[in-house]
């Protein structure tokens, strides 16, 4: 299963980084989002520490959706999805491969957006870099698991780009709340231990979503 997942993820990433259409759109969206929030922000009314976690996760959530939309769209034009489903690759392997490629996509957006956030909101990141990376990873795993599942369902509809956010966002809410709360604790200089309950919640959601979505995927593609 993991071998299939790796082969599929590698193929998806080759296509994405060759065409660059999805990743460029997501990066531009993320950076523009940060700029807009920055210019809409009144530093005398709201401290950057209070605003930044919300801005960060709003930007990541919506830029991630751009990549998730493309995840199964690349399989549709010449019905390449039929080639995948008719191959001996397990359905779970296909799902995990797609989710893994989406995870790399979201991670690239995060790698570019975090320095921009630091630049705009001017807070020291070095001392919280490692726990922050943990939060980013945990949240990205949950978002990608749920997003990949709903992307596979939405892609067969005429309103895929509209339907995906409508389906996925309610499930993103608990992940984004956990991620934003734990990010806020870290940015405000609280001890990392205070973020632990939120991190545990994130971990629990990841386990449930990854397992649940992997098991549910075969039923979403059944004709």
């Amino acid at each position: 299963m993991m071998r299939d997942a790796w082969v599929i993820a590698k193929k998806d990433l080759t296509i994405e980084f060759r065409t660059r259409s999805g990743i460029l759109s997501a990066l531009v969206f993320a950076l523009l989002g940060l700029v807009i929030f920055y210019y809409a922000w009144d530093p005398t009314a709201v401290a950057s520490i209070d605003l930044a976690p919300g801005v960060l996760w709003v930007v990541f959530t919506f830029s991630g959706l751009l990549g998730l939309n493309r995840s199964f769209a690349i399989e549709q034009s010449e019905r390449a999805i039929d080639g995948l489903l008719a191959s001996p690759a397990s359905r779970s392997g296909i799902f995990l491969g797609k989710a893994l490629a989406n995870l790399v996509f979201v991670a690239v957006v995060q790698i570019v957006a975090i320095p921009a956030l630091v630049l705009f909101y001017n807070f020291p990141i070095a001392r919280i870099a490692i726990p922050l990376m943990g939060i980013l990873l945990l949240a990205a795993i949950g978002l990608c698991a749920v997003g990949t599942l709903f992307s596979s369902m939405a892609v067969n509809t005429k309103l895929a780009e509209l339907l995906l956010p409508m389906l996925a966002l309610p499930f993103f809410v608990p992940i984004v709340i956990g991620a934003a709360q734990s990010t806020a604790k870290l940015l405000s200089g609280r001890p990392a231990i205070e973020a632990m309950p939120w991190l545990k919640l994130l971990l629990a959601f990841d386990l449930v979503f990854v397992l649940g979505c992997t098991l549910a995927y075969p039923f979403t593609i059944e004709e």
Binding site: K11, R18, S77, A80, D82, G83, P88, S90
Partner: peptide, 20 residues
């Protein structure tokens, strides 16, 4: 899944990725 390893399909769709 191993059963599907015996099958090769050709369709009027190419089943290919156009950027590869």
């Amino acid at each position: 899944p191993s059963v599907r390893a015996h099958i090769g399909i050709v369709s009027h769709h190419s089943l290919l990725y156009d950027s590869l």
